[in-house]
């Protein structure tokens, strides 16, 4: 039973990882790409690791999967934040379809 649920989680995770990569290719500029990859890849990878935990149960591998899940959840948004901020400050232009840019207005 656990293995069926684990497989479902791993498949969902793979689908979201794929969509995150698709977003990375299709979306127009750095900020939107960051947004897609930070969200979809975080949930996708968490799904895969949780599926692995369901497969293995409370064993050494299962605990490691849970710990990795926690660390990804804590570090992925911080790295996305750092990348977005440094791109803005080093002058990467947003896409021309951007409707509002209050951060730039503030800094100039």
């Amino acid at each position: 039973m656990n293995e069926i649920i684990g497989t479902i989680f791993i498949v969902i995770g793979l689908i979201f990882d794929f969509l995150g990569c698709l977003g990375l290719i299709r979306l127009p500029d750095v900020y939107n790409r960051l947004l897609a990859s930070a969200k979809c890849v975080t949930l996708g990878t968490c799904g895969i690791l949780f599926g692995l935990f369901l497969f293995k149960g409370f064993t050494a591998t299962g605990f490691k999967a849970l710990l990795c899940l926690l660390f990804i959840l804590l570090t992925a948004p911080v790295s996305a934040h750092a990348l977005a901020r440094s791109s803005y400050l080093s002058g990467v232009k947003p896409w021309q379809g951007t409707v509002a840019d209050e951060y730039k207005d503030e800094k100039r």
Partner: peptide, 22 residues
């Protein structure tokens, strides 16, 4: 959030209106 972003990525026209706000 993931379903929202997935929808925007898959949609052929990409219905996005990006912007940064305070």
């Amino acid at each position: 959030a993931n379903f929202d972003v997935a929808y925007r990525v898959i949609h052929p026209d990409m219905p996005i209106r990006p912007g940064s706000i305070k």
